[in-house]
Design a protein around this nucleic acid. Structure first.
Lengths: 218, 218, 218, 218
DNA sequence: CATGAATGAGGTTTCATTCAT
DNA sequence: AATGAATGAAACCTCATTCAT
């Protein structure tokens, strides 16, 4: 680790380097292993450099979390469609699940950080993750409502719980894809989702959404 | 906290008292806040008493986890039915969800410990929790297979993923019941589950399903 | 170690048992490893038993040293002849050396304790050993004087230093016999001593010591 | 002790200062009294300074031993002649003894450290001392063989034991010179050695070594 | 921007010892 | 004669943080 990067870096670069070091430590040994000392040691610089960049330990973690959050949000927003949507809700869901898990699989370092409350994440981190989750939930809920309506869901369906459940399962899907990429592929998960939707019967042939033709009918 | 319990307790009682103290600390401030020092301080005894009971910090945490695990397992096993089952799978599922969330709601201290890998749970804790989860999964999977068969699930349904998903959602249900008991009640969650099952259509009216007669045949 | 000797021993027996335990610890891991705790643990009794027998750690060590000293003195006094002696001084010395090293070889546990200021012997121990050494020296010096006179030693020979040197070498002989009994046997050491004495020329055949006859004259 | 040396010393100087402090403690109270805490207290600095210089207690002791060993070796090598030697072996031995004991007398702090396995020297120290002893022995043995040959020693003399004995006595001489410098002077010890050699008779008048006639003149 | 020296606090652990039973 | 519970002191070590240069 920690190539002998030229000493005396400009602030921005130094920050990036240090955050990379921290990320590595967290992934390898959890948040509990992060200390100013350790970061400085791994980066082969004096402790005070870390202080001058991040103020203190909390600042360091905050910066880490902020960077990860920004990246994660950027990636997710490319996957969640925005209303109004003009596509079949089933296809939409399956595509979104596939896209999201693929994305997670391809950026495991980022998503392990986000998805696993790794080894003693400090309150700060949990708070940020919770925030992010709430944001995603806010995007998801109306979509779910729309989808249920489109599909003709049962009377009195608790869409809040449904949205929550979908979010939870989506997260868990991501987790298992990261944890065991050989056993759990995006494709397998997408297939599972499609099969599940098929179980619900064909999408309601609502007037303005003729549905995908013949489809699984028999 | 920490009533001035009579000094000079017999070992067993002392252990219980100390584990209670630890639990409180974990719930309030996470595993990261647990230290021999802190426990002794909160219990208003000398540090060495803790050592004489648990050997060292790891021993203390292990004892905590073991106690919690024993209790949790005891409670869960009362809720998960064992095959062969002679009841309607939908009712079974709804009842189990209701029973489990009720149980969790009524023992929030225990279940917060188990369900929330709070604030820096040390490897030891995570391992135990993972073990417990695996055990439950082992019980759950055959049940799910049985239920799907009973109900006439779609061709090619990935029951491993389905079982996993149900487990994940069950856990999450428990979590929200503990976290916001006023908004999320066992009844609400049971209702939601029932509605969802209704969506799947009526249980397959398989001839021989008033009871587990010939079973997976048709 | 520490067979489950019947609990509730009479004092004298308990003391012996505990001193045996201490001896074993010292031989295995040095004085630094001796602690009331350790002794009690190895003897499988409560710490307080040790206290009631020896008062405190110092008392324990003192008892250990006293017992060892008594035994060592008993053994040595059988080897050191007392004046007046009516035998050839060379034979006397060689015999004594042989007897002593043999004795040491046959009681290695005792003599390792005495001869090796093992691994952090506390002041108390060093003091006792020094005392013992002084006692032996007191016995040795007149013997050496007598021997030198008998043999016709050189004018102005510093018998104090000679006695001291003999003592030192005797001790060292004992040490190497204990440490490497295969390489250094009592016989080898006795032979060496005899050869050395032969180098000095034949013992003065003068009945009453006619003085340093030839001497370094040329 | 422990003058209020200016705070904020450069590393090298700090190390020296701390090793001096440790030396003092060892000489006064033995290795058992050395602790990071104690060293810091005596040096009137924070414990962590000691840690930053030596890593841990073992590192501290190792540094102490290494420094002492380097110094001791430097001094001894100036005293032990190397083969081939062109001087009278008796004179050589006496001179060496005199030089060594003088040197020891003049550097008592160093040599007490080396010669007295003081009060619980930890394994590390014992190991180093044993090593040093072995090195000296390796130098000494060929010299002794040469000397015995020169002098015409008796048939079958066990030169290994002789060399060992001389080493042991040399060490002991050093010890008593340090312990009681008034009673035991280098001169007294040199005289004793010379007298002893005289007892062996004149050096063999080997052809190419005309004997210690006029001595250091021709 | 970066270093190196230093501090103080907090945690783990072991040990000698005492007291009540 | 023995146990088991408890204390207080002292050691090790690591960390966050500050200051002078």
């Amino acid at each position: 680790m920690a190539e002998p990067t030229s000493r005396r870096l400009p602030a921005e670069q130094r920050r990036e380097q240090l955050l990379d070091v921290v990320t590595q430590i967290v992934l390898d040994e959890g948040f509990g292993a992060v200390s100013i000392d350790r970061v400085a040691r791994d980066a082969q610089i004096a402790r005070t450099v870390v202080y001058s960049q991040f103020g203190n330990l909390e600042g360091l973690l905050e910066a880490l979390v902020d960077r990860a959050a920004a990246r994660a949000v950027g990636q997710v927003s490319a996957v969640i469609p925005e209303l109004p949507v003009s596509r079949d809700p089933d296809v939409l869901l399956v595509d979104a699940i596939r896209a999201f898990t693929t994305l997670v699989r391809d950026h495991p370092r980022l998503w392990r950080l986000v998805l696993f409350p790794v080894e003693g994440a400090p309150p700060l981190v949990r708070r940020k993750v919770a925030e992010g989750r709430a944001n995603v939930f806010a995007l998801l809920e109306p979509l779910v409502e729309w989808g249920v309506a489109q599909r003709g869901g049962p009377e009195g369906l608790d869409t809040e719980l449904l949205a929550r459940g979908l979010l939870t399962m989506g997260e868990d899907a991501a987790r298992i894809v990261v944890a065991e990429p050989d056993r759990f592929t995006p494709e397998r998960i997408a297939d599972f989702t499609a099969t599940l939707l098929r179980w619900l019967g064909p999408p309601a042939p609502s007037p303005e959404r003729p549905g995908p033709g013949p489809e699984p009918e028999a």
